[in-house]
Design a protein around this nucleic acid. Structure first.
Lengths: 246, 246
DNA sequence: TAGTTACGGTCTACAGTGTAGAAGTGTCAA
DNA sequence: TTGACACTTCTACACTGTAGACCGTAACTA
């Protein structure tokens, strides 16, 4: 019994080193392959040391998400609100592609920390720059954020990938009278370019915000669109039916 | 030893009854409070019976997601593609609000089963109806789907809720020179109406798609917007800087 | 009718999880 | 020297998903 392998004494491992190890492990293995015990083994410390520093696994994950967010690079806001929105969208797409295994955390732990505030400031500034009234700028800004997060998550989850042969077979087996458009787009799905799709969708959203802002700026809106709802979803036209097939 | 409490014999519990119990448990407790053992206890069966029918917890969750999706009611596609998109957006928002504890599953297990195909057919049909070329219709259709899912998830995760007093204090503590727009919007955040925000964002996206479709229909586009990128994100203007504060 | 097979259901056991509580070890101030 | 304190580790508990063996019943075959 010469010496205990791990004396119970301070070892100079600061919180940041543990966080870095946790970040790397999660980024590499994903959430299913991530556990406090595995982290301890990888970092060469007792699992309970991790909890002593971070309180719980939940709080540790929150710190990891914050750390990922802090790597987001964003040019300073300019006079061109449209380009500012493109920058935000591009930065978050970058984030999703750099850390696909942990991007989903940004949905769970949103809007905590200064990194997020700097980004959202750009978004809200853009919404006002587009001419939206404050009452709409707040909501549409959040929706733009949700759009960007949703697209990033869709990409990390494989929704934006080109069709595999197995999926193609599944689509071809669909009733071509009821799924005419889906079947017609199969070639497009096979050659899907997620970067292009993302860019076009962002452009569309920005163009729509511009339309909305111009309308609000000139008059009471209600010029270009038949109706601009103030509340609730429109469910007009057609009897509702279940989408599930027989 | 009169009788074993649970004879190992068929008990008439079909897969569907187990699925219903699982659905209810997950919808009520959320994923953290959901386990095979708890489900077994609630349904009065052995936990292994669940696995015998569903193979694994993962596959069971997939079935639960499919079941939720099959409750989506959607009017049949009409001649008005804009209204069709509103219907899809409204139906998914409904879904998120009805089952907030399990909505996130639709990101993990996307596009499996006939229910989803019926919905996405409406989306792709709308994209073509808007005048988008097939190469764009596929990607923008998926992005619209990601947008809808993202907004739904944002709502279930609390991102779209009115500001609490604690969050308000946090925002007020921000540097008002760097976060001018954010601070200015605090009153709007306090009275945020998520239904209205959702509706306005959907209108904006639809309007943007209409603009894009008209441009593509008439000429080569490049009329209303300075540039319409074909690929990649634009990162023009300004030196990049980290958004994390000192 | 007897034998076989297939299936539904259960039991046990294993390797793993997060974390509460206690205890050891070092550093620094009083 | 004596506390107080922060850091680290150990032990233990309640819980998880699930592999593999086992049992009962029903249906089919010879």
């Amino acid at each position: 019994m010469v010496a205990k392998a791990r004396p119970r004494a301070p070892r100079g491992l600061d919180k940041n080193a543990i966080l870095k190890a946790a970040f790397d492990l999660l980024a590499a293995q994903g959430e299913t392959g991530f556990s406090i015990r595995k982290l301890g083994a990888k970092a060469g410390i007792d699992p309970m040391t991790v909890l002593h520093h971070f309180g719980s696994k939940e709080l540790l994950l929150r710190c990891i998400a914050d750390r990922a967010l802090s790597t987001v690079m964003l040019p300073p806001p300019s006079e061109d609100w449209q380009n500012d929105l493109r920058s935000v969208a591009g930065a978050y797409r970058d984030l999703a592609r750099r850390y696909p295994r942990l991007f989903h955390l940004h949905f769970r732990f949103h809007a905590t920390g200064p990194a997020d505030h700097a980004t959202s400031e750009v978004v809200y500034r853009a919404m006002r720059g587009a001419g939206l009234p404050d009452a709409e700028a707040a909501g549409v800004g959040l929706a733009f954020y949700a759009f960007v997060l949703g697209c990033g998550l869709a990409e990390t989850e494989g929704l934006m990938q080109p069709l595999t042969s197995g999926e193609e077979a599944e689509l071809r087996a669909l009733d071509s009278t009821h799924c005419q458009a889906t079947v017609a787009l199969i070639p497009a799905f096979k050659t899907l370019n997620s970067s292009a799709a993302y860019a076009v969708a962002v452009e569309a959203f920005i163009a729509g915000i511009a339309v909305r802002g111009q309308g609000a700026g000139r008059q009471a809106a209600r010029t270009s669109s038949k109706k601009i709802p103030e509340l609730g979803r429109s469910r007009a036209g057609g009897r509702a039916r279940a989408t599930s097939a027989a």
